[in-house]
Design a binder for these strands. Structure first.
Lengths: 347, 347
DNA sequence: CTGTTAGCGCCTTCAG
DNA sequence: CTGAAGGCGCTAACAG
């Protein structure tokens, strides 16, 4: 008599169905071979209507849950997307991720999240771990990666989206906007409106700093040589924003416009300004940076540069799904999602 | 001559190392058996210092990335934690998740995220899909689950944390606070301070409604029979908050205190109040609900009930890790994370 | 401390 | 449309 495996013994022993069911169990119960059961679930078009129905019913009654680890191993398709961001705890990112996940879930993909804290080294470590899960696609934030990360991604041979930024030397697809253009645009716009005294409160994050640098250098070109910049440590919180304005004003500066690297900082500035009885935007204009779906209805006096985060999330998802469906499409995709400036005027 | 597998043929064919390396390749190169290589990576204490070093070096030079699907399948340990929340796009949740993920990552676990949109049915569907990944643990939000979800979780036999709430009939562990207590506490506190005219602006989410109901019924017990409640559809945005206040005031009501089911709504109320030249908190006191690490420094006039979201996240992670390490500990763990009321007084 | 053997649960390939 | 055989890459269990 053939030796019985542990599973078979357990099944004989008791009525507990805790020993997780396998496709074989379902198949036996439905009177088909395992592979037919598999096809009934994954490639229904290859299976006779009636048998498929029978299998599906058995799955229901037995409460079978396919083991995706096994499936992934056998098919080298994991239906997993890895998403690496600086932090999930930031409205811009979480909004985009939400939209992205919604679409991916709908399409039958699951999302593995990792947070890099704005560090390329952390990204590398996370990436290595996550690539072990054999994801079908990867979403990264920005264009700053270690050499090792680039190599690993290349040899993984899966679609990669670099989000939130545009740059040369794309790994694969890029979906984002130019942070240099943002800085430039802000400078030009407000200069044209007659503003001459600018100040910046920025968190110490790579893209925020790039926006700031671009802004400052554009202002220089317009003849404004001196722009106060307060760089504050991450994370960008309300508290940090308040502190930023305090420091700015201590430095004997009386800017007409304070440009913040994020809405959160800007809200902190508003709060601090309120407690100093400064009127916004008459005494002090404040510019934030955030998600358009929020800024439009936020504090009435707050101007912002806004990105359409949900739309970006959706586009990222679509780009990946396109690639999953057809290896040749979307090659070298590069989408400029743009940004809009919403100015709140003095009354 | 033995038939060669696809892998072997590919390896012979060219120098591309794109055919992903396996542990066997590493083992061969290091002159040990596959299992020794495996142990060198996963259970270093079982392997001779020298051989371990040799294996690790080979891993480095070859750029080997372990296939976690295979590992998980063989060991039935996936090092994966599934986290299901209503939405990731909410500061309270994203803050908690961030802390949770940080701890889990540190311990070598990865996080699979899913968003349920406050729906138990969606939770069920997500859960089924995600359980196929054989996660080592699951974090759910709240205590409202479908019968099917409960069954599946039971037969999965893995640690489960129900977060953000406390209730009877726990699935396994609960880490959260009582929403009934929140409502009750607000009522008592402000009644004692002399407030008599209350109004509520709440999003249509289960826990927010429970806080509201508890508040209203506690007020009734204190003799306040009439409390205006504006229930607005999700998601809770700034815009919705503004709209909420507008509606409230249209209903000929002049509340002394507006209680909002979230900080975001409260900020909308503040914005709307500002545009109506209402002074906060003199003309109108506003109460939010959110994360303590934010509320403390937020808009100066905004009172809040606050939860320590990062701490909750950490506790959830620890609870799971404890279970992973020792199946017997943390049994029936039930942690009340509490909440604090921060009142902003009129000046 | 190291190796051998035998699967984990599923899907690919090829044959009916 | 359905099935049989074999292997995906790794590790548990046992032996040395």
């Amino acid at each position: 008599m053939a030796k019985k495996s542990k599973r078979e013994l357990a099944a004989l022993g008791s009525a507990t169905q805790d020993v997780s069911l396998t496709l074989a169990d379902v198949a036996k119960r439905a009177g088909v071979s395992p592979i037919t059961a598999s096809r009934a679930l994954n490639r229904p078009e290859l299976v006779n209507e009636a048998t498929r129905k029978r299998v599906l019913e058995t799955v229901q009654t037995l409460g079978y849950v396919p083991n995706l680890l096994a499936g992934g191993l056998a098919s080298s398709k994991s239906r997993l997307v890895a998403i690496l961001l600086p932090t999930i705890n930031h409205s811009l990112f979480s909004t985009a991720v939400q939209a992205m996940m919604d679409r991916l879930t709908e399409a039958g993909y699951q999302s593995l999240l990792g947070s890099t804290g704005y560090s390329a080294k952390k990204e590398e470590i996370l990436l290595e771990a996550i690539l072990g899960r054999r994801p079908d696609g990867v979403v990264l934030t920005g264009t700053l990666h270690t050499e090792s990360s680039r190599r690993r991604l290349a040899s993984a041979g899966i679609p990669v989206v670099e989000a939130w930024d545009l740059g040369d030397s794309a790994l694969d697809m890029q979906i984002g906007f130019s942070h240099e253009q943002v800085g430039q645009h802000i400078a030009q716009h407000f200069f044209a409106k007659g503003y001459r005294d600018f100040a910046v409160i920025t968190a110490d994050d790579p893209r925020g700093l790039r926006r700031t640098n671009s802004l400052v250098s554009q202002l220089k070109q317009l003849g404004i040589t001196h722009t106060l910049v307060e760089t504050l440590p991450l994370p960008a919180t309300w508290q940090v924003g308040r502190e930023g304005l305090r420091r700015l004003l201590k430095r004997n500066s009386r800017p007409q416009l304070v440009i913040c690297s994020s809405d959160i900082l800007a809200l902190g500035v508003l709060a601090e300004a309120a407690s100093m009885n400064l009127h916004i935007p008459d005494d002090l204009a404040v510019l934030g940076f955030g998600n358009i779906t929020e800024s439009e209805f936020a504090y009435p006096a707050l101007s912002t540069v806004s990105v359409n985060a949900p739309e970006m999330g959706r586009q990222i998802a679509e780009a990946l799904l396109g690639r999953f469906a057809d290896k040749t499409c979307n090659l070298k995709l590069r989408v400029d999602t743009g940004f809009t400036l919403l100015e709140r005027f003095s009354t």
